[in-house]
Each structure stands twice: as structure tokens, then as C-alpha cells.
Amino acid sequence: MRLQYPSSVKIIRVPCTGKIDILHILRAFEKGADGVYAVGCMEGDCHYNSGNFRARKRVEQAQKILNTIGVSGERVQMYNLSSSEGPLFAEIAQEMTERIRKLGPNPIKQAMKKAA
């Protein structure tokens, strides 16, 4: 399909979104990521039955923690799509990039620069 999506999106492959832990998301922000989104299978279509539901819960928990510590929880999102939906994948990457652009850079990254 040779679809275009923003080059700022870095893909980290996991066997299932159920593998994603809150700590993975938090560490990404600690290391300066501006946003994180998990792309899992459609709800009800998880190859491991409930991996994508676990991921959604963990994304929600990470959002709560980020809101508490002054980094907008909106920077973390969960999306569900099937593996055949390439165009939607590119669309989501675009949508997420725009969402993060509106929110601006990760305040932790800026604080780190100031501290250094």
C-alpha cells in the first residue's frame, strides 16, 4: 500500500498488547516521549482472549497516574483495529500525532533539559 504516516511515530513491537505494562508507558515518558499509544486487535478478537482488554485497563491506569503527576493523561491512548486495516493504522498515527502536537512537548523532557 505504501501508505504514509508521520515519521515521529516509533513502533515497538510486542507479542500482544496484553504484554504492555504501565511501567513501559511511564518509562517512555520518563525517557522523553511526547505521547504513547497502544494499537491492539479488535475487542473480542484477541488471539490470547483478553490481552487487548488488559492493555486498555493499563492505558487507563497510566492516564490516571500521568494526570496526577502533571503530565496530561491524554498523551496515552488505546486503539483497536484489525491487522488488515493498514489505511486506518496510518490514519490513527496521524490523529495521535495531531493530538500530541496540540498538547505540546512532554513537560518532563523540558524539565530534564532545564535540570541538565
Binding site: L23, L26, E30, T68, G70, A111, M112
Partner: peptide, 21 residues
């Protein structure tokens, strides 16, 4: 161990955000 990691990460970011290293 996991909860230790989450709390430490959250606290590090919170205090960094407050300008405290």
C-alpha cells in the same frame, strides 16, 4: 517490584516537573 517501579517512575517525573531533581 512492579509497583516499586511504577511509584518510583511517577515520583521521578512529578518532582522533575516541579523543578526538583
Amino acid at each position: 517490584k512492579k509497583e516499586v517501579g511504577i511509584l518510583a517512575s511517577a515520583l521521578r517525573m512529578y518532582f522533575l516537573n516541579q523543578g526538583k531533581d
